[in-house]
Nucleic acid binder design. Sequence first.
DNA 1: GGCTTGCCTGGAGTGCGCTCCAAGCCGTTA
DNA 2: TAACGGCTTGGAGCGCACTCCAGGCAAGCC
Lengths: 153, 153
Amino acid sequence: MTALATFEAETRSCWDVFRDPVGEPDRTPRHTIGEVSAASGLTAHTLRWYERIGLLDPVDRSASGQRRYSDADLHRLAFLGRLRLTGMPVADMLRYVELAREGERTSADRRDLLLAHREAVRQQIADLHATLAVLDHKIDVYNGRLTRCAPSH
Amino acid sequence: MTALATFEAETRSCWDVFRDPVGEPDRTPRHTIGEVSAASGLTAHTLRWYERIGLLDPVDRSASGQRRYSDADLHRLAFLGRLRLTGMPVADMLRYVELAREGERTSADRRDLLLAHREAVRQQIADLHATLAVLDHKIDVYNGRLTRCAPSH
DNA sequence: GGCTTGCCTGGAGTGCGCTCCAAGCCGTTA
DNA sequence: TAACGGCTTGGAGCGCACTCCAGGCAAGCC
């Protein structure tokens, strides 16, 4: 079972690992920056920049100096990508990563950071749902289904 | 009923009108920029800037030249604020407003714009829910409820 | 050998959405 | 009369998150 999991981890494509980052990640460096860019939707520029500012640990290099990302890198990147996509500022992501680097004793701080972000996410969901209702209504009006209650614009 | 509605519209506070912009809006200019700022959460700077770039029609002025927003202004502002809050770029909002100024013949274009934004909103909601699941899981781990399946960071 | 493709670097540049500045006017309160 | 708070303007400035540039290296293929 463990052997199988390891085998699968080693053979999963960059795209697959990024999309579904579960289990113990492999640490062998094998994905090029182009592959990671395609899988993550981040540009190669952005990936290098994330590394430069410390969001990612220094990535392993091939013999000729090119980056080779491991599955573990992809796992972290997938999580950071989710935080970013849901509106966490890069500065906060950086704080989270730096806390993580300090080890076990900062876990309460990290949890609090995630708790705060969870609240922000819930708020965003509420805002989006409220807006969805407004949009549905207006679109109905534009479709001519509701001539009463017409919007002023 | 209409008389009552009109009466109520004239006596509702800036805050109330902004929060619940329903019915035929009154067009008498009566809210100061400070009131609108407090009600909308937008700074006075931003309100003036929105007007300057054409998101809002030129606002009525008091005898001494100060802005006085009508309920109709608040209605538009509330809608624009929702679009903005849910990630529509200012340029797209501007396009919507400019189409609206051209009158009835652009209503199909406006509807399409809102349809596109509705899809974007739905996508955001999906992203947020997916992230919420990840956050819930990680927070559980940090709370020590799940020692198995621990994250790498 | 020559061409193409992909990647490397530090540092400068860009686009967006505000945000602020300086100088001044108006109306109210003391 | 003087101070104060709120408002006015055009234009400059700012913070964020990338995004790109110039110049160069390395590997693969015809």
